[in-house]
């Protein structure tokens, strides 16, 4: 395209191609959805963000103060001419006694396995390795419980969430109520309520759409391995169904993310076998497959 140095005509049309204009008209005439979010929800979110910001400032301030105190105290540690540390005879300042923060009355956290919960404030807890049952009873105010874990944060407005922390991985399962998963990059995903029964069990009569929704719910709850099982079932049992193509792509991505490289390679290969056309993203998939590098044959590996 050549660069046109003439000033634009103020009345120039936004779209010149009649064919493209038809698509644009379809977008223009689409009615905007009815907005469900309320000013109360916005206010609650604003309050939560403000609390987070304050905590950040306080944390930075405390860290700076601790660093200054350490620098100040260091000469007394190093007072020996031999260079060895000597015990400080007496501390000049007694550490201020502060009561540990207590959780809000509406909040209950039960550590079923693992160490006790670290309470950071009435509406903030930190979980390390283990399994926890977290309940936030209905309350009048806009407060949201922030459950911080190595894998991200679970924000609970009200309800019960089962949280399992293993290393840097966190699985959150919403049993009742309203909660949101906040990834480390800040992306927010509302959690779907998991079925009360054994939700790992896949209904043998479930159709492809139900399986796709089930996998979505498991993913939203951070349960990648369970989602992989459901997607595997979808692409294997319903290969010709409409959701199968996206499901196979999702399955490959999830397997790759789970470091199950050989299975991811097979999933991408199966995708190309089933959907070789360019408009079906075959180019993109070929690239992804190439990036995984060579590997063993897929015989005996899923998905098939």
């Amino acid at each position: 395209m050549s660069i046109d140095l003439r000033p634009p005509d103020p009345d120039e049309p936004a779209v010149r191609s009649p064919e493209l204009l038809r698509l644009v008209q379809a977008a223009r005439t689409a009615p905007a959805p009815v907005l469900k979010v309320s000013s109360d929800a916005v206010f609650a979110g604003f309050q939560a963000r403000r609390r987070d910001s304050r905590r950040l400032y306080v944390g930075v301030g405390l860290a700076a103060a601790a660093a200054v105190a350490l620098l100040w105290a260091r000469p007394s540690f190093m007072s020996s001419k031999t260079g060895t540390f000597e015990p400080v005879a007496a501390t000049t300042v007694e550490a201020a006694h502060t009561a540990p923060p207590a959780l809000a009355a509406s909040v209950r956290v039960v550590a079923e396995e693992g160490p006790p919960t670290v309470v950071r404030g009435p509406w903030q807890v930190e979980l390390t390795e283990g399994r926890y049952d977290v309940t936030v009873a209905a309350h009048a105010g806009p407060e949201l419980l922030q459950v911080e874990t190595p894998g991200g944060t679970v924000e609970i407005a009200q309800g019960r969430v089962l949280i399992v922390v293993a290393g840097t991985r966190t699985e959150a399962e919403l049993r009742t109520g309203v909660a949101t998963w906040i990834a480390p990059d800040g992306a927010r995903t509302p959690l779907a309520v998991a079925p009360a029964a054994d939700d790992d069990a896949i209904d043998p009569a479930a159709g492809p759409s139900e399986l796709a929704r089930h996998a979505d719910a498991l993913l939203a709850a951070g349960r990648r391995d369970a989602a992989i099982r459901v997607l595997d079932r979808l692409v294997s049992d319903h290969p010709d169904s409409p959701p199968a193509r996206a499901a196979l792509l999702d399955l490959a991505r999830l397997l790759k993310a789970a470091a199950r490289t050989d299975e991811a390679r097979c999933a991408y290969a199966l995708y190309l076998e089933r959907y070789p056309a360019k408009e079906q993203l075959a180019d993109e998939v070929e690239g992804a497959l190439a990036r995984l590098g060579p590997g063993p044959a897929c015989a005996g590996l899923r998905p098939r």
Binding site: A32, P33, L35, K36, V37, V42, F46, R49, R50, S53
Partner: peptide, 15 residues
């Protein structure tokens, strides 16, 4: 996605 995005826009704006 409209509800989520509208909420985020206003929270960001108020902040």
């Amino acid at each position: 996605s409209v509800d989520d995005l509208v909420q985020e826009v206003f929270i960001s704006a108020f902040s």
